[in-house]
Structure formats: structure tokens, C-alpha cells
Amino acid sequence: MGYRAEQLFAILRSLTPTLLGILGVLILALPIRFFEGALPTPIIPLVVVFFWSIYSPDFLPSPSVFAIGLLQDLLMGGPLGLWASVYLVTQFAVSSQRAYFLGREQKVVWMGFALAAAVASLMLWLVMSLMSGALLPVGALSAQVAVTILIYPLFGAAFRELHSRVLVEV
């Protein structure tokens, strides 16, 4: 492989988590209505932010997280800065607990993700309730967060493989 190609691949590798986050936002914007809309779409960007904030923050710098959140806000039509702040606060909280999570069993990390997702959704609900001036129903949000937490082991395993085999050259 030439030097140029190698450099290109290095850039691609370093951009992969950001691109995965953007893909997650696009998935959220697609008209996916499995089982007549009974199954909510998981918030994959949250998994991306959580995973790379623990295992390799260098691959997902905060400007990337900001961009992912802002794209989601622009695409969903909600207030600007909402998802950006949710993702950034998640990154802040997770990176402060990074030392605890590193090297732990996946079950523990999963619990950590569940906690982070719960906190993120609480924040989302509070902000949206404040902005609309009424306590909003939590049903749809809790279903969506539950699905996101349930799929974490799957995506966590996939991201782990991707990260250790492709992104970081062994």
C-alpha cells in the first residue's frame, strides 16, 4: 500500500465514530415504522457517544459530538442545541467516570449505559417540558430509551470488534 492510501485510511479510521454517529442520526430521521410504529427507533448516536467516550475519546472529540447533536436538532425540527447539549453532557459525565469503566465487565458497562441513558432522557424531558410549559407524557420517551438500552450489548459488541480490529491497528 502506498503512503497516500495509508494516510487516507488513517483519516477514514479516525473519522469512523463520527460517521457512525451521523448514520445513527439519519436512521432516526428515516420513516421506520416496524410493527406499525410499535417499535421505537433506538437512539444509536447515544450509544456511539457513550462507547467512544469510554474506550477511546480521541476518536470522538467533542466537536464531533456537537456536530452530531446539532445535525439531529436540525433534522428533527426540535429546538436547536437540545440534542447537542444532551450528547455533550453525556460525554462529559462519562469521561469523568472513564477510569471506573475501563477494563470492567461488559455487564457493568451496560449498567453504566442504562444510567447514562436514563439521565440523558430525564434531561431531555425536563428541557422539553420547560419549553412547552407543561409536563409532557413520558411514555414514548421511556419506550425509546428502553429499546436503546436493550440494544446496547449488540451495538457495544459490534463497536468493540470494529474498534479493536479495524480502527486500531494491532
Binding site: 479510521r13 479516525s14 480521541d58 476518536f59 472529540p61 467533542s62 455533550l88 462529559f92 475501563l102 479493536s164
Partner: peptide
């Protein structure tokens, strides 16, 4: 998972200060 390696978008980019400013 190679978290000690420095192959991302750069070490400096991910400093705390940037994160707080972006929040």
C-alpha cells in the same frame, strides 16, 4: 481497546476545556 494509543483526531482536540465550551 487501545485507549492508550493516540490515533484519533488528535489529543488536544478532546481537552476538557473544549468540551465545556461546547456545552
Amino acid at each position: 481497546l487501545g485507549q492508550d494509543r493516540r490515533e484519533g483526531l488528535g489529543r488536544k482536540a478532546n481537552s476538557r476545556v473544549v468540551l465545556v465550551i461546547l456545552i
